[in-house]
Design a protein around this nucleic acid. Structure first.
Length: 504
RNA sequence: GUGCCGGUAGCUCAGCUGGUAGAGCAGGGGCCUUUUAAGCCCAAGGUCGCGGGUUCGAGCCCCGCCCGGCACACCA
């Protein structure tokens, strides 16, 4: 993309509009007034047409000028506000020479304007405001993309989301859905007697997930901090503190690859409930998602690409080992480590050196099973090696009580019966530290304070994390995570310095 | 990181086998008092992502670089 100066006066259109700005000021008009009273948002006018026509009530509406169709001494325009878009009809014989000249010659598509007038229907039936007075609320000096095709360039859409929101109507709907979803989640969790809390983003020791962190530095403390990769360890400290039911919707940061399903910063819901186990978490997860999605979109059925997904509970539950058996030929339970390795190389499953048995099983699962999990599915009971914070399974050794929820072949929730045995927890951390020493950059660091908290005693606890961005992708049928994040991470844009002769 | 595709006017896009860079919309001037992708007439608008090279001649071919998208790899 071509770097663009923020105020590039070599752009003809910009120069012309700055010229108009001067003319407007010369007429004694403030092109950037301070406030404006709106009586009827656009959608209200559309909703109340009949009574507004009958009453001949004067309405006042403000918004961005999106089109101009001049007809000599009259003109039609659409103005757009947060609620929608309404047509206005400007007539010389209604507003007078000066105002008409302002509208006709000095107002451009993209300007913010306010109009007052009565409501009528045009010959073709469109609800329209017959303008009696018109005022400029903010002059735009940079032209908007074309009215018909909108803004197509994907890079510009992400970098200049403000333009995307102005001209591509579906975009606003996605982020309204996102807002409704978050609100619905909060209502649901509040209704289950959870409290919403905020824990540190800047952490001296990161943990709660297997990932590489962003590093930063605090000047006064002269100390290294990490941007959190998960909320987990702090939320469980709050369970120790007796809050019993807590949740946080917050931003996590992982310094890893970016693709269609990964943004370096992303939004995670995590919740922890005392006296609960992973079975309770499954109930909570499927009901939370079904309820919140229903409130956000109006349905528990969503379409994602070629798939129609039914989110209504209960979701299918299958153990990891059974799932592998379902989609492959291998009997994981009885297989030796050599068998597992053989299977992996036969099936092109990529392996790092020195993988434990548990990690091998997980690799096979991810390669052979995950992509097939289209309808919501809980995969339960994971190998202990890949789950250092989960409680050992109550009946099966070598496993932990953990589940992940999959939709459309992607993980969207991760939960377990939380490990609350401080001695066991220390040993698991020590195993991780050993892995780290062997070069596993994602292994956990030992968090002494977290163990100290466990030593005071944590009740039996169920915990769960849900990726909000992934969920948003499914319910808005968005192919990329960038489509559901207002300002997705991008390589920094180089904007060339303003040339000296262009300075104001 | 690797591969493929793309970057041409403010926006959306054409541009043949290498032969002087085009359209629509937006913007400017003119006409037009119920249009809606309004219409008609006129004029204007370009570092063809950047830098090298080949060639009489490069938007097009070659090399390098920048930015993006997709796939793979990495990654709970």
């Amino acid at each position: 993309m071509q770097p663009e100066n923020a105020l590039d006066s070599s752009n003809d259109v910009v120069a012309q509009r700055i010229q108009k700005l001067g003319e407007i000021r010369d007429l004694g008009i403030d092109p950037y007034p301070h406030r404006f009273n709106v009586s009827h948002p656009a959608q209200t006018i559309l909703d109340q047409v009949e009574s507004l026509i009958d009453s001949e009530e004067r309405v006042t509406v403000a918004g961005r000028l999106m089109s101009k169709r001049g007809h000599g001494k009259t003109g039609f325009s659409h103005i757009s506000d947060r609620t929608g878009r309404v047509q206005v009809y400007v007539r010389l014989d209604r507003i007078g020479e000066d105002a008409h000249d302002l509208y006709n010659r000095l107002m451009d598509i993209g300007d913010y304007i306010g109009v007052s007038g009565t409501v009528f229907r045009t010959r073709t039936g469109e609800t329209t405001v017959l303008v009696e007075s018109i005022i400029l609320l903010s002059k735009s000096i940079r032209p908007l993309p074309e009215k018909w095709h909108g803004l197509q360039d994907i890079e510009t859409r992400y970098r200049q989301r403000y333009v995307d929101l102005i001209v591509n109507p579906g975009v606003k709907e996605v982020f309204l859905t996102r807002s409704r979803l978050i609100r619905a989640i909060q209502r649901f969790m509040d209704g289950q007697d959870f409290i919403e809390v905020e824990t540190p983003v800047l952490q001296p020791i990161y943990g709660g997930a297997l990932a590489r962190p962003f590093t930063t530095h605090h000047n006064t403390l002269d100390a290294q901090f990490y941007l959190r990769i998960a909320d987990e360890l702090y939320l469980k400290r709050l369970i120790v503190g007796g809050l019993e039911r807590v949740y946080e919707i917050g931003r996590d940061f992982r310094n890893e690859g970016m693709d269609r399903t990964h943004n370096p910063e992303f939004t995670m819901l995590e919740f922890y409930q005392a006296y609960a186990d992973y079975n309770d978490m499954m109930w909570l997860t499927e009901n939370l998602i079904a309820t919140a999605v229903k409130e956000a979109t109006g349905s528990t059925t969503v379409t994602f690409g070629e798939h129609t997904i039914d989110l209504s509970p209960p979701w299918r539950r299958v153990t990891m080992l059974d799932a592998i058996q379902e989609f492959t030929s291998i009997e994981v339970q009885d297989a030796s480590e050599a068998d597992l390795r053989g299977f992996c190389s036969d099936h092109g499953v990529h392996l790092d050196k020195g993988l434990s048995r548990g990690k091998l099983i997980n690799e096979i699962f991810e390669a052979c099973v995950e992509p097939n999990l289209i309808q919501p599915t809980f995969i339960i009971d994971y190998p202990v090696e890949i789950s250092p914070l989960a409680k050992k399974h109550r009946t099966t050794s070598g496993l932990v009580e953990r589940f992940e929820a999959f939709i459309c072949g992607n993980e969207c929730a991760n939960a377990f019966s939380e490990l609350n045995d401080p001695i066991d927890q220390r040993e698991r951390f020590e195993d991780q530290v050993a892995l780290k020493a062997e070069g596993d950059e994602e292994a956990h660091a030992l968090d002494d304070d977290y163990i100290r908290a466990m030593e005071y005693g944590m009740p039996p606890t169920g915990g769960c994390g849900i990726g909000i961005d992934r969920l948003m992708m499914y319910i808005t049928n968005s192919p990329s995570i960038k489509d559901v994040i207002l300002f997705p991470s991008m390589r920094p844009e180089i904007i060339e310095p303003e040339s000296t002769d262009a300075a104001p």
